[in-house]
Amino acid sequence: MTGVLAVTSRPQPPRVAERRKPYRGEERRAAILRALEDLLQQRSLEEIGVADISEAAGVKRNTFYFYFANKAVAVAALLSELFGEMFAGAIPFVEHDSDPADSVRIAIDNTVAAWHKHHLLYHAVLDASHSDAAVREFWNKWLSQFIEPVAATIDSERKAGRARPGPNSLSLASALISMNVTFLDSVGRSGFTAEAAEEARQTLFHVWFSALYS
């Protein structure tokens, strides 16, 4: 439910024996992404140039292009990392391994926590999607990958008799995910205080649980 809820597979944490020091190239790529996220919290993507990102990351301009074809591709990489961060909290819901109320609550808590942590980045990406076709295409594609897993979970819960009958699962999943994005974006722009985050958790839980199980 991750800005949205859903995942496509269970993440596999590396075994201790497999852990290693990051290669220099990995460190440079990570530095570029950290610099981009920091800059996006200060100004819009339109106002940020590749030279700005490179300078903030402490790398040369051609190093940026070694890892990313353009700013939109770098934004896509940032969002992909956020997807992984949101992954774990949705596992109880998509794998039906806990009480429905608990699984929905865990997924919502994880969604709100992730949005709270990165809300400035989400705002910047959403704003950029209005004027940058490449960012808009990736954002829409990124959201769409959540819809089918959530819809499949809804169908499975209905078949098991836990979830109530209702509208087409794909349409319902799409509507709920879109609601998460719109609502959390609004909360973030109004000030993501601890009180606002708690109210958002309670509101989204009520809507999701009522839509699926009430």
Rank of each mutant, 00 (worst) to 15 (best):
E27T: 09
E199W: 14
E137H: 14
D185Y: 07
L121H: 06
S129M: 02
D132T: 06
S144G: 05
L184R: 09
A107L: 01
K117R: 14
V75T: 04
V7Y: 15
P22N: 01
E18R: 14
A134N: 10
S98V: 02
A101K: 11
Q41D: 12
D52R: 05
T203R: 14
V75R: 08
Y213C: 00
S156G: 13
I147C: 07
V150N: 08
H206S: 15
G49W: 10
V50H: 09
E47N: 06
G166Q: 07
R105T: 01
A31S: 12
H118K: 03
P165C: 02
A163M: 10
L126A: 07
S178I: 07
L126D: 07
F209R: 00
W142Q: 04
A194D: 14
I154M: 06
Y67P: 04
L170P: 05
S178Q: 14
A88H: 13
I32K: 12
H130F: 12
E55V: 03
F93T: 05
V187E: 10
F64L: 05
E148C: 04
P22T: 02
V125Q: 04
A197W: 01
M86I: 11
V207S: 06
F87K: 15
P11W: 06
A74T: 03
A30L: 12
G188N: 05
P14T: 07
V94G: 01
L184I: 02
A151K: 10
E47R: 14
A107C: 03
P13M: 01
K21C: 07
A107F: 00
F93Y: 13
K159V: 03
L176Y: 03
S44K: 10
N110M: 02
H206G: 15
S129C: 04
A124Y: 07
S169H: 09
L126N: 08
R164M: 10
P22S: 02
M86V: 05
R105S: 00
V187N: 10
F64H: 08
V16K: 13
A133I: 02
V50G: 11
V150C: 06
D185G: 07
A173P: 01
A77E: 11
R164V: 11
L82V: 06
Y65D: 02
S131G: 08
I108C: 00
E157G: 06
K71R: 15
R105P: 00
S131Q: 13
Q202F: 06
A77D: 09
A31F: 04
D155N: 13
E26P: 02
S156K: 15
D38N: 05
N140Q: 10
A160P: 01
R19T: 06
A197K: 08
E148Y: 13
